[in-house]
């Protein structure tokens, strides 16, 4: 049963609250934690809310976007600099949910935005009781954060126009969990792929880099034949699972198809 809900308004207050209740559960938008609380028998005694910490702003400086972990996903849609993410934002939950669910929550729920942050080579800013560090989001996803640490912001360079690619396969057109999510940065120099990054979601417990696909694309002519051949290599990177949305077999089968659709457009994915 819940004994306390604390809403600190500064990092100092947050540290004090966590000192008093080291086992407290952090909550921001509530879309992940509150369903567990409402279910009952949750064993959580203290909730510490991040909603009034002042880590919900989105800012831009010299082509770098810095996004507070407690920023609601809907907030991203209000910035023209992040227009390239509009298909991503639309594919996450419903507008109502996006008014609540936060960037940090999506990161640690390994959601579609987390997949994009990996593709964007985003950096996470992490604080603990004494200091601050930054680490690649990709590493945070792999290793998590240490006890007492909190991701306060993520930042990434706004990609050059046309280089960001995204596709999400789900059971329904709107408000549906991912079967396969593909996010990629494909920079082209004279038609050749230059140092691309491809991230996949929904096909392993956490978002993964499709490094073998990247390797087959780098320094190659960006055409349908190359992309199709490279996409097939994704099988090595994934550890698909079965859930209510799709079987592991299905996820493995369609992953290359959705990589092609993300990179080449819808029509090209059909074979």
């Amino acid at each position: 049963m819940l004994q306390a809900v604390v809403t600190p308004t500064s990092l100092g207050d947050l540290r004090k609250a966590l000192k008093l209740a080291p086992k407290a559960t952090l909550v921001a938008g509530g879309t992940l934690v509150m369903p567990i609380i409402n279910e009952g028998a949750h064993g959580i005694s203290t909730l510490v809310s991040l909603s009034k910490l002042g880590i919900d702003a989105v800012s831009f400086k010299k082509g770098i976007a810095t996004i507070g972990a407690a920023a609601p996903i809907a907030e991203l849609a209000r910035h023209s600099e992040l227009k390239f993410l509009s298909a991503v934002i639309d594919s996450i939950g419903s507008p109502t949910l996006r008014n609540m669910a936060t960037v940090g929550g999506n990161l640690f729920a390994y959601g579609d935005l987390a997949v994009c942050l990996v593709a964007l080579d985003a950096t996470a800013i992490v604080v603990n009781a004494k200091s601050k560090r930054s680490a690649p989001v990709e590493e945070i996803i792999k290793k998590g954060v240490k006890a007492g640490e909190l991701v306060t912001h993520v930042s990434f360079a706004i990609p050059k126009p046309g280089t960001f690619k995204y596709a999400k396969a789900s059971r329904r057109a709107l408000n549906s969990a991912s079967i396969v999510t593909v996010a990629a940065i494909i920079p082209l120099v004279k038609g050749m792929v230059a140092d691309c990054r491809i991230a996949l979601g929904g096909v392993a417990a956490k978002p993964v880099r499709a490094k073998s696909v990247e390797k087959l694309l780098n320094a190659k002519l960006f055409d349908e034949k190359t992309v199709r051949a490279a996409a097939a290599a994704a099988a090595k990177e994934i550890a698909p699972f079965t859930d209510a949305y799709a079987s592991a077999w299905y996820r493995a089968r369609v992953t290359p198809v959705h990589i092609c659709r993300a990179l080449l457009g819808d029509a090209a994915g059909k074979s």
């Binding site: 809900v5 604390v6 938008g29 369903p35 279910e39 809310s49 809907a74 109502t96 008014n99 609540m100």
Partner: peptide
């Protein structure tokens, strides 16, 4: 009571949100 159905949608500071997922101390 899980944020899946939308029956409890209300406006908080003008924005549609799910009342079942909001601890009132946070608003």
């Amino acid at each position: 009571d899980q944020g899946s159905c939308g029956s409890c949608t209300v406006l908080v500071d003008g924005k549609a949100k799910l009342a079942c997922l909001i601890p009132v101390e946070t608003i």
